[in-house]
Write a protein that binds this DNA or RNA. Structure first.
Length: 249
DNA sequence: AACCGCCGCAACCGCATTTTT
DNA sequence: GAAAAATGCGGTTGCGGCGGT
């Protein structure tokens, strides 16, 4: 495939956007939408490539965007999502309304990574001290895992010193048989069983659970990418509810 | 006041993926 | 089904602001 020529080769402008350019882009998108980013700059009279316009719009000019002031809750969500998804910034952004992949990526690299690094070194030195005083006190293979009613394990990252206020859960992706797609026909007993063992409070009955599952499946959660989104939603929904195994920590 | 180094963020680049022809 | 075009994504860079010396 032949690569399209990039901006500089076509004499287009690069670098920071001026307020005038922003205004042109905003009013053009408001009036005409952004069905075709490639054609947009020409139509709007901007000396930018389509890619640059799209980036400017999605990361900065979009009306529904929240900028700056990442809350503690958002920070914790980012950490939890990062444990689940790795560097899939756009997938993380989809779980944080008003935040962009670029912003999350920047926040991760500039703030959170640093905090976690500090936390980790503090924790490691504490562990070292414990090991020195009582070598049998810690088994690294099991110490930070908790079994959930036969549904595999969650890894548990304890509270950071000061800044990060809660335990972080991350399901280990050993999908139990009960959740495997091949066992998800329309069997009510399967859903009953899940409900009995893992009931999120706002799910009223087997049909609701089934619908919820099917919605997630539509979003390609099960059968792709180890069903991480499905697991994520399940754990998020179940957290904090009575009987949820995580809340005993 | 001038210089320097660090940090945060916006924007770019190149590759991957999806959509269109 | 193949090729081309468009879009999306994640890694990286460069610049401006700020604090310290």
């Amino acid at each position: 495939m032949v690569r399209a020529p990039c901006c500089d080769k076509m004499g287009l402008k690069k670098g920071p956007w001026t307020p005038e350019e922003d205004q042109i882009l905003i009013s053009h998108v408001q009036q005409n939408g952004h069905a075709n980013w490639r054609a947009l700059p020409k139509q709007a009279g901007l000396l930018r490539c389509g890619k640059s316009c799209r980036l400017r719009w999605t990361n900065y000019l979009r009306p529904d965007i929240k900028r700056g002031n990442i809350s503690k809750e958002e920070e914790e969500t980012i950490i939890r999502l990062h444990e689940l998804l790795g560097n899939r910034w756009s997938a993380m952004a989809a779980k944080l309304p008003g935040r962009t992949d670029n912003e999350i990526k920047n926040v991760w690299h500039t703030h959170i990574k640093k905090k976690l690094k500090n936390y980790q070194s503090t924790r490691d030195s504490k562990r070292q001290k414990i090991r020195e005083s009582d070598p049998q006190s810690e088994n690294p293979n099991i110490s930070n895992r908790k079994e959930i009613n036969g549904f595999g394990y969650m890894s548990i990252s304890p509270q950071s010193s000061g800044e990060l206020s809660s335990v972080t859960y991350s399901p280990v992706m050993t999908t139990p048989d009960i959740f495997k797609p091949e066992n998800f026909n329309s069997s009510k007993s399967t859903f009953s069983e899940i409900r009995k063992r893992f009931l999120p409070g706002d799910i009223q009955g087997d049909d609701d659970l089934k619908t919820w599952f099917e919605m997630d499946q539509e979003l390609r959660c099960v059968g792709s990418d180890d069903g991480k989104d499905f697991w994520y939603n399940l754990f998020i929904k179940a957290q904090g509810l009575p009987g949820f195994p995580g809340d005993v920590i």
